[in-house]
Computed example of a mutant assay.
Amino acid sequence: MDREELSRIAHADHPIKAPLGDDSVRALLRHTLPRGDERVLDLGCGPAEWLLRALAAHPGVRADGVDLDEGSLAEARERAEAAGVADRLTLHHTSAEDFAPPQPYDAVLSVGAAHVFGGLLPTLEATRAHLAPGGRVLIGDGYWASEPTPDAVEVLGDFSDLPTTLDKVASAGWTPVQAHLSTRHELDAYEWSWLGSAANWALDHDNPEVLKLVDERRAEWLHTYRPSFGFACLVLRRTHEGP
């Protein structure tokens, strides 16, 4: 089973592919879309859950989503039609590097997709090219809430602690205007949802391969990275609007 198919199964009950509750998502979108009539781009949108929620909450918003997984985009199209927002959502089956819109966006989103770009700072650089003056970026990525073990770094990657992460963001020319740090409840609820959805599917379909992946992830989470992993969503503006 490929990674994208497993992800769709595991996120069946948690369509926001990040450790965030519904109230946190609403608050972040409110800070990212203060006017309610913005043009929004999601780089690595998957099934476009962030965009669908933004469109439902703000009738004046128009949105574009970019992703390489056609299955996720097909799901997004179906859900947009069902929600009555398909006329305000355009989906692009292409890479972020190849996406060349005719005009910049008031807001650019990329939550939980930094691995696609090679890390937090490369992701921010990718958003910069698409952001209109005065626009806002909503980005979400991991950080170390406490000293990680070498095994945790091997599993999740070489994050920084929160102060260092924010120092890097500021040095790259961005000013945080709002943020949310996922709570322990949000972090645990996300993992249990992922594990439960995938396990139920594996048991229903008698699929030992997926059940083995679930067992491995549960062990990694509980024994390796649960004590040290944190997740931060930042709403950012460019510190200087020049080139």
Rank of each mutant, 00 (worst) to 15 (best):
V25F: 08
Q178Y: 12
L6K: 09
D22L: 07
H58P: 09
A96H: 15
Y190K: 00
G65T: 03
V214S: 04
A232W: 07
S171W: 10
E147L: 13
L109G: 03
T239M: 08
S95Y: 07
A48I: 09
H115I: 13
R226N: 05
G157L: 04
A12Q: 14
L124Y: 10
G230A: 00
F117D: 13
D206S: 14
H14F: 15
T123I: 11
G157A: 01
G196I: 06
E186M: 00
A63E: 14
R77P: 12
R218C: 12
D67W: 10
P150R: 07
T123Y: 11
L89M: 09
E220S: 15
P133Y: 10
A145Q: 08
A10P: 00
G142F: 12
A54M: 05
A113R: 15
G65V: 05
A152S: 03
E4V: 12
Y225S: 01
G112K: 02
A18N: 02
H58D: 14
V61R: 03
L68V: 12
L28F: 07
R217Q: 09
G112V: 01
R35M: 08
E191P: 15
S7P: 15
R226C: 13
D87M: 13
V25L: 09
N207G: 02
E209V: 13
A57T: 07
A219I: 10
A172D: 15
P176D: 08
H115P: 01
E97I: 09
L51T: 02
D151C: 09
G60H: 01
A129Y: 12
V137T: 06
E97R: 14
L195M: 10
D161W: 04
C233D: 13
G142H: 04
F117K: 05
D13W: 05
A96W: 11
V40W: 09
D64Y: 09
T183M: 01
S95T: 11
G84T: 03
I139P: 04
E75H: 08
P59S: 00
P176G: 01
H93N: 06
A132K: 03
H180P: 01
L28N: 03
L213K: 15
T175C: 06
T90P: 11
G112H: 01
L187Q: 15
A27S: 08
L89P: 01
R62T: 12
A126G: 02
T175R: 06
E241P: 11
D23C: 09
I139S: 05
I139R: 08
G157R: 01
W174R: 01
L68Y: 10
V66I: 08
P19H: 01
C45Q: 07
A199Y: 11
E49L: 06
H115G: 07
L91F: 11
A152D: 12
D188C: 04
G135M: 03
E75F: 05
R237K: 04
G230R: 00
S197A: 05
P133L: 07
